[in-house]
Amino acid sequence: MIMFAIMPLWHWKGGQNPSGIRGRTTPQEFRQRTERFIQEYQVGTEKGIPVVQPPPGADLYLEASMWSWRPVLKLKKGASYTLHLSSFDINHGFSLYPMNLNFQVVPGYDYGLKVMPNRSGDLRIICNEFCGVGHHIMTGKILVEE
């Protein structure tokens, strides 16, 4: 009975839910949106991948493709953002290390999650859905600053 009640209750009171804003997109459309986002807020480049620093409250676009996460995100602790996840090719898995926060990334779908980083640090994104022979080198980066 407790178990029946606790899932709806957590939606109402709890801080971690996988609901998000779910929408359809196309790989091309999402890529364009991500490129626009990068142009707007780019502050540098790391390992050939653009680093962006959007203001608190912004919509973040993170594109998964074989085998990288683009771009690198610089966020503020305690600020809230909407993180949009999608894939350019096949299924990927968003796994934030070391928080162990996991979401499925599906091509053609825009998964918009409201996030609020609660600690500063240099975080990694691991791909945890098999995406071909380069799956194990597919890592990305999120920096959270005070």
Partner: peptide, 21 residues
């Protein structure tokens, strides 16, 4: 898995990955 180690993954030492974990 509780530490976030992914399933179906060949190399969790991420030797050749751009951002090491």
């Amino acid at each position: 898995g509780t530490f976030g180690v992914p399933r179906r993954h060949w190399d969790v030492s991420f030797t050749h990955a751009p951002f090491p974990v």
